[in-house]
């Protein structure tokens, strides 16, 4: 493989990272809303949130991507394929992140909130100062895990024509008749990015260690 082709692969890897980071970010925001709706006492909020989570966790991402890619034009929305890919990835990860957040909130020991209650904190202050910070810390490992899953899952957006790492490897493998080489390099790049993400996650967890549940 020439240096030029390798540079092409590296660029594609960068594109994969951009798509993944954007999806994780949008997914986190949507996930927070979905989680809030799921924890809401109002059934008309809780119920659709439940269906949302169940659907996006129960249907293969590939099918979701194909659906969104074909559904948007069918209802008259014409967008580039990368937008359809972003919508699909973000909604999928939002469903998982909503569940992670819900788990984090459920794991905050009741006693800590009783202590806040005794100290006179209002329900909103309890949420903002005690419940949310502890729950977010508890979900950091799950968030890192989700980031790695989405990075790998982003390979599927190649199917709807986004020229990211997997699609680039596919194109080069087809034109050079060297599938072993290009898929191995792509795999190595995915692995390297994942290790960096996992390492960063471990550092973040270490940084938060002093404030872990005693």
């Amino acid at each position: 493989m020439t240096a030029r082709l390798f540079e092409l692969m590296l660029k594609a890897a960068g594109y994969t990272v951009v798509i993944s980071v954007a999806s994780i970010g949008i997914g986190l925001l949507v996930g927070i809303l979905v989680c809030a709706a799921k924890l809401s006492p109002r059934p008309w909020l809780r119920w659709p949130a439940g269906v949302f989570v169940s659907f996006f966790r129960g249907v293969p991402l590939l099918v979701q991507l194909l659906l969104i890619y074909n559904l948007l034009p069918a209802v008259g929305i014409v967008v580039p394929s990368v937008v359809a890919a972003l919508v699909g990835l973000s909604l999928c990860t939002a469903a998982y992140q909503a569940e992670n957040l819900r788990g984090g909130f459920a794991s905050v020991p009741r006693g800590l909130l009783e202590a806040a209650d005794m100290a006179g904190l209002s329900p909103w202050q309890q949420f903002r100062r005690i419940r949310a910070p502890i729950a977010l810390r508890l979900t950091v490992p799950a968030l890192v895990n989700e980031a790695i899953l989405i990075l790998k899952a982003s390979s599927l957006v190649s199917v709807v024509g986004v020229i990211e790492l997997t699609r680039t490897a596919q194109n080069l493998a087809a034109s050079t008749y060297e599938p072993l080489l290009f898929y191995s390099v792509a795999g190595g790049l995915y692995l390297a990015i994942n290790w960096i993400v996992a390492g960063g996650g471990a550092l973040a967890e270490r940084g938060l260690r002093r404030g872990r549940l005693a």
Partner: peptide, 13 residues
């Protein structure tokens, strides 16, 4: 009224 719990319930963060 102040309260001291069996499990301390200190806020870990």
């Amino acid at each position: 009224i102040g309260m001291v719990f069996q499990q301390f319930n200190l806020w870990p963060h």
